[in-house]
Design a binder for these strands. Sequence first.
DNA 1: GTCTATAACGAGATAGAC
DNA 2: GTCTATCTCGTTATAGAC
Lengths: 241, 241
Amino acid sequence: MSPAQGSTAQGARARARIEVTAAIKDAARRQLAADGAAKLSLRAVARELGMVSSALYRYFPSRDDLLTALIIDAYNSLGESAEAAHAKAEGAGPVRRWTTVCEAVRTWALAHPHEYALIYGSPVPGYSAPDTTVPAAARVGLLLIGIVRDAHHGPGLGELPLPAELRPEAERLAADLAPDLPPETAMALVTAWAQLFGLVGFELFGQFNRVVEDREPFFRHAVTRLAQGVGLTEDGGGSGS
Amino acid sequence: MSPAQGSTAQGARARARIEVTAAIKDAARRQLAADGAAKLSLRAVARELGMVSSALYRYFPSRDDLLTALIIDAYNSLGESAEAAHAKAEGAGPVRRWTTVCEAVRTWALAHPHEYALIYGSPVPGYSAPDTTVPAAARVGLLLIGIVRDAHHGPGLGELPLPAELRPEAERLAADLAPDLPPETAMALVTAWAQLFGLVGFELFGQFNRVVEDREPFFRHAVTRLAQGVGLTEDGGGSGS
DNA sequence: GTCTATAACGAGATAGAC
DNA sequence: GTCTATCTCGTTATAGAC
């Protein structure tokens, strides 16, 4: 903040702090992969880094804060991958953009199975994620919303069914997530979002073992049908069937 | 096995063994809820039962065997709930039977969150489920297959899309799971199966917090659309749209 | 001010001798 | 089966180096 003469020294300090923080998180991620989030231990992390456990408290006030940092990093890493893939598909039709994002989610999950388990797997006993994780966690969802929003730029669409008992919830959902989208579209989006991670999780957690062999085309087809379920069509519009 | 004269004593012995086994599993389930599967420890279970850890090995040769028993029990408990709900819906249309089973899965999951996490959540580090879990794990899937099979008793249906690149996989899948169903139906079934657990998992693991409020009608609607996705129609047939 | 190290606490797991 | 000595853990207090 202060642009005083000590900026070099401060910069070095800050740089060192960033480096040590990164090293702590790297070691923690290795431990995550080996023993799972439930057994993540500050002492083991410190041991791996040749530090003493109390020194870690300069960087993370508690074990749970370290966990939170790992969770936010994982969400952001996934979000970045998805956004990068989406950027490359600019100009393509909405279905293509949708499936591109979905496949990026799957690819990231297969490359980072333990971080995926951390954010989309079983909750860690005794740990409750704070609200600070919400923005990072929302990135993939916002990306999907954006794709549907672009497709539905004009009026006149609909075609998605919505039972009367669900209308209040759909309207609340739309008001929260995408006020410019029709309620039934917002509802279909949330459904597709959960189903996307159902597909990824089943593959990653072994439920497809001995069931689905050729997983990439299977996944591509499944998410293409998810895109149809939210009203996207190949040629750009969202005017239902 | 041997129907000798000691059958009464043997029966008592066997009964005691069953009771102790059940007590061990109950205590293990409590520990599962408190600390998670990764920290399941034979010693802690023994302590809770006032036994000594070495005594447990007469009932479960290892911690992993105890875990396997809990997994099989969980799958069977879920399968029984789903089958019981399905039995009550006998005579109803296929969509109604489908949603009944799906809602039974959700209800069981909400009532047994830790057991759900054990079977459908993150894998337990260092543990690999043996093939003996497969029959129990298949029960819900078989139930869903049966519903679709009943609906598709006649010929002429189709309407489900299937890209050429997926045809071999779909045929292999159908041959394995339901040789009497068309390949595209088998494929759609597996997709819907994964998506069903995506919906349940998202609710249970907190992803719907601050997003979906009125979850029961949301879920009902979502799985109704899943039923349509496998070709089921309210009036009994499976003749596509 | 910023960091690391020593030491300690209370609680719990673990291994082995008996 | 029991007991004990030795580990682990998260966390804090404190003292000293830069």
